[in-house]
Nucleic acid binder design. Structure first.
Lengths: 151, 151
DNA sequence: TGTGAATATCAATTCAAC
DNA sequence: GTTGAATTGATATTCACA
């Protein structure tokens, strides 16, 4: 049993079972006849960049890596905090005013976040127009941006 | 100092500092004159659904929640595992054949994943055409899909 | 390099108090 | 409902060795 094969198996387990603890991996693997210790699982998890998430259910779940999304959100937040001027909502539209030069990057980052309430975004030098799926959606976007600015 | 204020502060710290351990939070808060214990931070982290990520640098970082991205990936993987028929690469293009009805949802999920090597995706009833940024990118997409199917 | 055994470190929970 | 102190529980690392 090579490390790589084991790690493939870990991924498979991750999507097919609820893994709360590293010991769960140890147990499930041993049911498949693969005997490793928690120490090895810990190393695998680090290497695979798996994460332990607080689950909605109240417990914890191990999950696949998520680095990119986080990076995007961080960048958007930082950019907003640096460049924000004003925000307005009308119907399903929003207009975000930002410091010159920041419109396109913010529009792009908003796109990348793939908010389900955003239909599309376009940014010129100092404005970002967002078309939301509804007025409700526009309000959600407002809330989201407020949060980022407040954080 | 209310819990909510403290949690806002935690978010701010998260984006402005590198937090490796819960004790880092305790220390940084106490520098701001806010005295709580690791137990409280642990509860905050659970409630805010923060995650401890294996960092590229080798250590660990606490980070903002990431549930949505994970959900998307899981859904894409499950859908692919259910509906996959074949995959082909030519130049910077790929054609994925799937069971009837699954093309649009897979195209959409692929879009949502925002793979940096994918330029654009379009799905009809049973096919998904992806335009990648390069032939290399197309190969990366192939690898990604293979992984999902293998997991 | 990869691993287990033991250990150290870190995180989650319990329990009492407010 | 919220917290700290103490504790338990879980995870990361060290060290020896294959």
């Amino acid at each position: 049993m090579k490390k790589q094969e084991r790690q493939q198996l870990l991924k498979r387990l991750l999507t097919s079972r609820e893994i709360e603890r590293q010991e769960d991996f140890v147990r499930l693997l041993s049911e498949d006849g693969i005997h490793v210790t928690q120490a090895t699982i810990s190393r695998d998890i680090k290497e695979m960049q798996l994460v332990k998430l607080p689950a909605e259910s109240g417990g914890y779940r191990y999950s696949l890596p998520v680095q990119k999304k986080i990076d995007t959100q961080k960048k958007l937040q930082r950019t907003l905090q640096n460049a924000y001027i004003s925000f307005a909502v009308q119907d399903q539209f929003t207009i975000l005013k930002v410091l010159p030069g920041n419109g396109p990057v913010i529009a792009s980052l908003l796109d990348q976040m793939r908010y389900e309430f955003v239909f599309g975004t376009v940014g010129d030098d100092s404005s970002v127009l967002t078309i939301c799926v509804s007025h409700q959606g526009a309000l959600q976007l407002e809330k989201t941006i407020d949060h980022m600015l407040a954080d």
